[in-house]
């Protein structure tokens, strides 16, 4: 049974209704967004479920996942920090900011802290060039822009987020302590 269809029958119906009935393929991207918001990333099974709904081959869904940078095939941190380093932001220090933030968290851009909480990514223009350095945070289906950032400001914010976040399987408050080692 198609788990995605089972969980979101209404949403999927709405998505399909946006496009002509003979153009089900157009629903691939919206379905990927739906699944990723729910599951955090796109697994092979998810691709197969979407392929079934959109009536295309799994490979065709996979191709779409591979082309677009916002689709992830692996679970990332609970909080995704996406820093824009494009030229306009770079001119206002975003690259240094990113390096500083990564050093603080002891990860490389694209990496996730060993506790699986924070992923820091370098992304392309987020259309906030006038308020750089900036990042966009993503937690589940919540998305927020954070402008005029410094490493210290970001870390403060992260700590406050941590306090409110708890791992589902344990009552331990989340730590932000790097566990050492080199992680990608």
């Amino acid at each position: 049974m198609n788990q995605l269809l089972k969980k979101f029958p209404q949403e999927i119906k709405k998505i399909l209704a946006k496009y002509p009935p003979d153009q089900k393929r157009a629903s691939v991207m919206p379905l990927l967004h739906l699944a990723q918001q729910d599951r955090g990333y796109i697994s092979r099974e998810t691709m197969a479920e979407i392929a079934e709904i959109a009536e295309v081959e799994v490979t065709e869904v996979a191709s779409v996942v591979g082309f677009y940078t916002l689709f992830h095939t692996e679970p990332g941190g609970k909080i995704r920090i996406q820093v824009c380093t494009d030229i306009a932001c770079a001119l206002r220090g975003s690259r240094e900011y990113l390096d500083g933030l990564c050093a603080e968290l002891d990860i490389k851009p694209g990496g996730t802290t060993p506790d699986g909480l924070v992923t820091v990514e370098e992304v392309k223009c987020l259309a906030a060039c006038d308020r750089a350095p900036m990042f966009q945070s993503q937690m589940g289906d919540e998305l927020e822009y954070h402008e005029h950032q410094t490493v210290a400001r970001t870390m403060d914010w992260l700590r406050s987020m941590m306090a409110s976040l708890r791992l589902p399987e344990s009552d331990e408050p989340l730590s932000l302590e790097p566990e050492g080692g080199d992680h990608e």
Partner: peptide, 10 residues
């Protein structure tokens, strides 16, 4: 009118 989201591709 319907919206359609891209996913990170200039």
């Amino acid at each position: 009118i319907h919206t359609h989201l891209g996913a990170g591709a200039y």
